[in-house]
């Protein structure tokens, strides 16, 4: 368990995606510039969330539709003065994992710092940050899917406009720069009105279609931040899938740096 955290669920509208600049400008852009502009706008629209918290339920399904569940609670604090965000994730179930907690300091210019607390040993372990493509907690989401990506982590190419469930979307292809990424490309459908990721297709290192993400049940918070209450990731190669549900999302709950120290990691519940 580790690596780039969960801020994504709470802070970014799923995979760090969104829209380009206003339409008039778009005419003069190359597809690469337009693609990047879409993601820059997505990033910009998420500025100023302050702090937030929420509960997550992850439902893992295998080919025979057997399911297992994991529950987590997550708190996030937006970075100030150019610093990255801080995230605390606590595992509530399965019961043998209860009290296991993960603290992440995101950094814009270097690898994130991450610490894992193991309650049975009362031990805090620092975690290496080079793990990206592995599955998160046995789910179909990988660490890089849910990590707080930066716009600069990818290059982009705008492909076309297309509708998803009757909503007009931009379709953008992005290519990870990091050689540790599990993908050669990701195709993302971003809705034109709110710059939310509605759907994404992931291609593995052999460039074959690996997974599809669908986000739905979006709710608006503080009249500004859209959050999907349900996301489903389907793995086409294994037939497995994971549903991730978010509940009790709250903004401005009064969190501060003191809630994101190794001391708070040890008493997280």
């Amino acid at each position: 368990m580790n690596r780039k955290l969960y801020r994504a669920w709470l802070t970014l509208p799923a995979l760090a995606v969104t829209l380009g600049l206003a339409a008039p400008l778009a005419t003069a852009e190359t597809p690469e510039e337009k693609g990047r502009a879409i993601f820059e706008e997505a990033d910009r629209r998420n500025d100023g969330f302050g702090d937030n918290q929420g509960d997550m339920l992850m439902i893992l399904k295998n080919k025979r539709e057997n399911t297992s569940e994991r529950e987590m609670s997550v708190q996030g604090l937006e970075g100030k003065n150019g610093e990255g965000d801080k995230t605390m994730m606590v595992f509530l179930s399965p019961k043998d994992q209860k009290g296991t907690a993960l603290l992440t300091y995101q950094h814009k210019d270097r690898d994130d710092d991450q610490w894992l607390y193991l309650p049975a040993l009362k031990r805090v372990k620092k975690i290496a940050s080079s793990k990206k493509s592995g599955p998160f907690m046995g789910s179909e989401f990988s660490f890089e899917d849910i990590g707080g990506q930066q716009v600069d982590d990818y290059t982009y190419k705008y492909l076309r406009d297309e509708q998803v469930d009757g909503q007009d979307c931009f379709v953008v292809e992005s290519y990870p720069k990091d050689k540790n990424s599990g993908y050669t490309k990701v195709i993302t459908w971003v809705d034109k009105q709110h710059y939310r990721t509605l759907k994404a297709d992931f291609y593995d290192r052999k460039n074959s279609h690996l997974k599809t993400l669908v986000a739905k049940d979006f709710n608006l918070y503080l009249e500004k931040f859209w959050r999907p209450h349900e996301m489903e990731m389907v793995n086409h190669q294994t037939g497995r899938s994971t549903v991730l549900k978010q509940n009790n999302i709250k903004f401005n709950v009064g969190l501060s740096d003191d809630d994101f120290t190794q001391n708070s990691l040890k008493r997280a519940r």
Binding site: K132, G134, N180
Partner: peptide, 12 residues
């Protein structure tokens, strides 16, 4: 030293 996704599996 950690090897992640050993032989393209999910095992670290």
């Amino acid at each position: 030293y950690s090897f992640y996704s050993l032989f393209d599996s999910n095992v670290d």
